[in-house]
Amino acid sequence: MKTFIYRVFIKVWLFSAVGLGLFAKVDKVEIVNDVHPETVDSKNQFALIGGGCFWCTEAVFEQIDGIISVISGYAGGQTENPTYKDICTGKTGHAEVIKIHFDPSKISFTQILEIFGNAHDPTTLNRQGADVGTQYRSTIMFYNEKQKKEAELWKEKLTAKLVDAVVTEIVSAPKFYPAEDYHQDYYAKNPEQGYCSFVIRPKLKKLGLE
């Protein structure tokens, strides 16, 4: 029901925005999952990435200037409408990811990838710290050829700097499933929870975000 209402809201908002002339120029509108237009204008773009537990990556990017919103969710697997319980089995094929809505006039996709590379270990396969499983794999799911090329260049340059090779997968963006409500803004809502205190907070401090 929430997804349906959200879809209706987005469609009404887009219609109103166009009618009011809020989008001065629209080169291309590509609807993905019937939820977000992935390319709208010079101030609205999207990125889909995964780097371990989405509580961590979400907490990082919600602190970054130019990021409009971050949604935690699942993508890249074969199970339709997966739940967190499904994901935890490691059998759905999905990765925990975040969908980032950003303003490219304030932050570029390449800058997002640089932050992404510092926010997790892209050299470990299917593991981030104590979180182990394919659902925690490092992944960049591109929405267009430009993002693909930038991701490949980022991976190449980062691998050249590190002792171990970067194992981040770079794949075309599949269907994205938003995670359950209680996962959204998890760190902001649960700062004293154990995982937040001992895993997320130290990471934010290391990145100079807290």
Rank of each mutant, 00 (worst) to 15 (best):
P37C: 13
T124K: 13
Y6T: 15
E192Y: 01
K99H: 14
S105W: 04
E80K: 11
K157E: 14
H101I: 03
Q135R: 06
K99Y: 14
K99Q: 15
E169L: 08
I115M: 01
V199M: 08
V166K: 00
I31V: 11
I31A: 02
A47F: 08
L207E: 05
A130F: 06
E150H: 06
Q63N: 04
K91S: 08
I10V: 15
L158W: 03
K161C: 01
I140W: 12
D34I: 01
F102A: 10
S42V: 05
P178R: 06
K106Q: 14
G21F: 00
P104V: 05
G93I: 07
I98Y: 06
G21P: 02
G21W: 01
E30K: 14
L14E: 07
K146F: 09
F61P: 08
K99E: 15
K25I: 01
S42Y: 02
R127T: 02
I98M: 05
M1C: 08
T39I: 15
L113K: 03
F176N: 03
Y177N: 08
A165S: 11
K106T: 11
N118A: 04
N81M: 04
K203G: 07
V18R: 06
I200N: 06
Y6V: 10
Q63H: 08
R137A: 02
K175E: 10
I49D: 09
I49V: 14
T123F: 00
P174I: 10
W55L: 00
A188R: 12
A173H: 12
D181G: 00
S138G: 07
P37W: 05
N118H: 08
H101D: 09
V12C: 12
K149Q: 15
K148M: 15
Q111M: 10
